[in-house]
Amino acid sequence: MEVRTIKVFTTVDNINLHTQVVDMSMTYGQQFGPTYLDGADVTKIKPHNSHEGKTFYVLPNDDTLRVEAFEYYHTTDPSFLGRYMSALNHTKKWKYPQVNGLTSIKWADNNCYLATALLTLQQIELKFNPPALQDAYYRARAGEAANFCALILAYCNKTVGELGDVRETMSYLFQHANLDSCKRVLNVVCKTCGQQQTTLKGVEAVMYMGTLSYEQFKKGVQIPCTCGKQATKYLVQQESPFVMMSAPPAQYELKHGTFTCASEYTGNYQCGHYKHITSKETLYCIDGALLTKSSEYKGPITDVFYKENSYTTTIK
């Protein structure tokens, strides 16, 4: 009895394709271990004539594949690729409408935090270190965002349907971005203890939790000093293409032309909904596939993004 075979390709990165001759009487799992086709788990399936010449994702289970996976995804987590594939199996079914010149995501599976993050990423200057993220990001900007969303979920250790947080998501993504040249110098002034300067680099240099107003941050924000008295913390120097200011959701007025974009969060910790506000020729609110415009805006804002380049204080 002759062994019926077909020729397929296996890959971990969709760049390096490895030619395989597979036995049609055995499952993919018996031949390769966990195997995925377009995100779908085909591990328990036997090869079919229609699979001839198709590319299958496999887990990096030998040295060659491990090197290829690390170079593309910059992670050695053995569960990463499987999590990416199972997320992709959902995100490829989502709709990605162009809204006001940006790629958004039609609401499904509690994905409003991903839509808000995706919209924000198209408006701030950011370059990702893992080629996987950078490639998928370019495709997302062009309207094909399924891979990018699935990668975000995998890097953030999230599953489809789980509630997510924009600030946490951005923080994970910033860790995989090139923020080497970003720098922030802060000064804390206390009447009792004097003053202390701190220099922050990388992710810490672009994120701040405690106030939404970048102007206020430049002037000074009140913080408790270690001595128990009130101290003032203010920005001395900022070198970065953008800054992200966050605070627990509270009524906040966004003035046209003073910011790049913002995240609105309605609801409580267990259950809520994100919308995205962007400042173009007027203010726009993007909620999944829905767009509304207004000249002014007041609502429960939790993150505001500002364009920056270089700032030095005039406070002496």
Rank of each mutant, 00 (worst) to 15 (best):
A40T: 12
P97C: 15
N61G: 14
T258H: 10
V22Y: 02
I45R: 13
N157H: 09
C285R: 07
Y297Q: 00
M26H: 12
F174T: 03
A87H: 03
Y137M: 12
Q175M: 08
I105R: 05
T312G: 09
L283T: 07
T199W: 04
L65P: 05
V243T: 01
K233I: 13
Q230E: 11
E215F: 03
N49D: 15
Y84S: 03
K298Y: 15
N157Y: 07
Q98R: 14
E296W: 12
E168W: 06
H90M: 12
E71C: 08
C112P: 06
Y28N: 02
F174C: 02
T116R: 02
G220P: 11
T314C: 08
T258V: 06
D303N: 04
D303I: 03
Q237Y: 15
V166D: 02
Q122Y: 02
L153I: 07
K46F: 11
L126D: 05
V236L: 08
T43P: 05
L37D: 14
C149W: 06
L291W: 15
T199E: 13
H176N: 07
G161R: 04
V67Q: 13
I152P: 00
T232A: 05
N89H: 14
L153M: 09
H273Q: 00
A108V: 08
I45D: 15
V189E: 14
A69P: 05
Y265K: 00
R66I: 11
E162K: 05
T116A: 12
T314Q: 15
T64M: 12
L114K: 02
R139V: 07
C261L: 01
K7L: 12
V160P: 07
L114V: 09
T35W: 05
Q30F: 07
H51M: 08
T120D: 04
K54W: 13
L118T: 05
Y73P: 04
A108K: 07
Q222E: 13
T258P: 00
N100I: 06
V42I: 12
N187A: 12
L119N: 02
T313F: 15
S240I: 01
Y208S: 14
A150H: 04
G299A: 08
H90I: 12
Q98G: 06
S104L: 07
D23V: 14
T159Q: 14
K307D: 09
E264V: 11
N49I: 14
P130Y: 00
T211D: 07
S86R: 14
Q195G: 08
L126M: 08
F305W: 08
K233E: 11
E204Q: 14
I45V: 13
A289M: 11
E308P: 11
N157S: 07
Q195E: 15
E71T: 09
L186N: 05
T5P: 11
F56T: 05
N110I: 01
L119M: 07
I15V: 09
N16V: 07
D287Q: 00
Q134N: 10
K95C: 13
Q20K: 14
K44G: 14
T192D: 14
V67N: 15
V243R: 01
T266Q: 12
G267A: 11
Y269L: 15
M170F: 08
G164K: 03
G288L: 00
K127H: 11
S213F: 00
V188G: 05
N14V: 06
N129Q: 11
H176Y: 15
I6G: 06
C271L: 14
L153H: 03
E2A: 12
R83A: 09
H74N: 08
G101Q: 06
K54C: 15
E239H: 12
E68Y: 05
T19F: 09
E253L: 08
A136L: 03
A154H: 02
E281A: 06
Y265G: 05
R83G: 05
V203H: 11
D180N: 13
V304K: 00
G33N: 04
S50W: 13
V236T: 06
Q134W: 02
N268E: 14
N178G: 07
T159W: 09
R66W: 09
Y172H: 11
L65C: 07
A136S: 10
R141W: 06
G272M: 01
D13S: 06
F259I: 00
Y28S: 06
F217N: 02
A117Y: 03
G33W: 03
I286Y: 09
Y96C: 03
L200Q: 15
G210Q: 02
T55M: 08
T116D: 06
C285L: 11
T312H: 11
Q238V: 01
T91G: 03
K7C: 12
Q20D: 07
K201I: 12
Y306H: 00
A140C: 13
K229V: 08
T282P: 00
T198E: 13
Y284T: 12
T103L: 06
S279V: 06
L65V: 07
L133V: 04
D13T: 09
E215C: 05
T64G: 12
N187H: 11
T169D: 03
Y84A: 03
S104R: 03
K316W: 15
D77K: 05
Q230G: 07
N268H: 14
G194V: 01
Y297W: 12
Y274R: 02
L212Q: 01
Y72V: 06
E264K: 01
D287H: 00
K298C: 13
C112S: 01
M170G: 01
G267E: 15
P131L: 04
N157K: 14
G202F: 01
G257P: 00
G272C: 00
T27F: 14
G202N: 05
K233M: 15
C182F: 05
I45H: 11
T11G: 06
Y252D: 00
V203T: 10
L186G: 04
K46D: 12
N129E: 11
Y72M: 10
C271E: 08
V185L: 06
P249R: 00
K280E: 11
T314H: 15
L65W: 07
G202P: 01
W94S: 02
E281S: 07
G202I: 00
S295D: 15
Y138N: 15
C285E: 12
G299P: 02
D63L: 07
I223C: 15
G161T: 02
M85W: 11
A289W: 05
K233L: 15
T64W: 07
S171R: 14
M24D: 13
F242C: 01
K219H: 08
Y28D: 05
K201A: 08
I277S: 00
V189W: 08
A177N: 04
Y138W: 14
K92R: 14
I45W: 12
K158G: 02
T169H: 03
I223G: 14
D23N: 11
T169R: 02
G228Q: 04
V206W: 01
T103G: 04
L37I: 11
A154R: 02
I301P: 00
C261I: 05
M209N: 14
W94A: 01
T199K: 08
T199H: 11
L151I: 02
A132L: 03
T198A: 10
Q270W: 06
V8R: 04
P224R: 15
Y57K: 05
A205I: 00
F9L: 11
F148A: 03
A140N: 02
R83V: 05
I6V: 14
E308L: 09
V160W: 03
K93W: 08
R66N: 11
G272K: 00
S310C: 09
D41P: 13
K183M: 10
L235E: 01
V22A: 15
E71P: 02
S86N: 13
T11W: 06
Y269F: 12
G257T: 04
A108R: 09
T159V: 10
M26I: 13
F305C: 01
M26C: 14
C227I: 01
D165F: 06
